[in-house]
């Protein structure tokens, strides 16, 4: 069964990407297969409603509530579903905890798998060839490009998302935050700290 079509139909569309997308949307809309208002709704969802604030909410709660943290690390799916953070590209979640001994970091070398309900749409660098190619071989050099330097005693554990399981890093709680409540702690949790290319911000 041949799987390589030497005349890919996409080459029939305009080569300029903006015109290409416009042309395909026009044909699909005329054909009744796509409603442009639904496209607007999808874009609005990921630009304004589903993003790293969701993940930060989970992390901040795990920092203040030991029982919640234990349940999250043991079996994240029911815990996240109860918070309303279930959905497309987050059907099977595993949360991995950073400690002094282990620093976790997430990549998808084969495409760009990412926990959408918790972090939104992946950033450009996460989808880049450089991040996908290098994170498994030289994670410490990649971390250095994000300004993160880890001691040699801290092991780096890189999770390559090759299946439909999605990983969220639970970053370490910064010191000096003992008096902060969940809402204040949320502001310290960056997107990159939940991918493992950053650390939570010190207040």
């Amino acid at each position: 069964m041949p799987h390589d079509h030497h005349d890919h139909p996409h080459s029939l569309l305009p080569s300029d990407p903006a015109l290409r997308v416009k042309a395909l949307e026009t044909i699909l809309t005329q054909k009744g297969l796509v409603d442009p208002a639904a496209l607007d709704e999808i874009i609005d969802t990921y630009e304004n409603r589903i993003g790293p604030k969701n993940g930060a909410h989970v992390v901040a709660r795990a920092w203040v509530d030991a029982e919640f943290r234990a349940a999250l690390l043991a079996d994240a799916d029911p815990v996240l579903a109860e918070m309303g953070y279930y959905g497309r590209q987050g059907e099977h979640m595993v949360v991995v905890e950073n400690t002094d001994e282990v620093h976790n970091m997430v990549v998808c070398t084969l495409c760009s798998c990412y926990p959408w309900p918790l972090l939104g749409i992946p950033p450009g660098w996460y989808k880049s060839d450089a991040y996908r190619a290098r994170s498994v071989r030289e994670p410490r050099k990649v971390l250095a490009e994000f300004g993160v330097a880890l001691p040699a005693e801290t092991a780096v554990r890189v999770w390559d998302s090759t299946a439909e399981v999605r990983y969220l890093v639970l970053p370490q709680r910064p010191s000096g935050t003992e008096d902060l409540d969940e809402a204040a702690l949320m502001a310290l949790v960056t997107r990159d700290s939940m991918i493992g290319t950053g650390l939570a911000v010190s207040p």
Binding site: V107, T109, P123, W125, D129, R132, R134, E145, F146, G147
Partner: peptide, 13 residues
């Protein structure tokens, strides 16, 4: 492309 050489730096955003 996991492990490939030569892709240059990652650019945070």
């Amino acid at each position: 492309m996991g492990g490939r050489f030569g892709d240059g730096p990652v650019t945070p955003e």
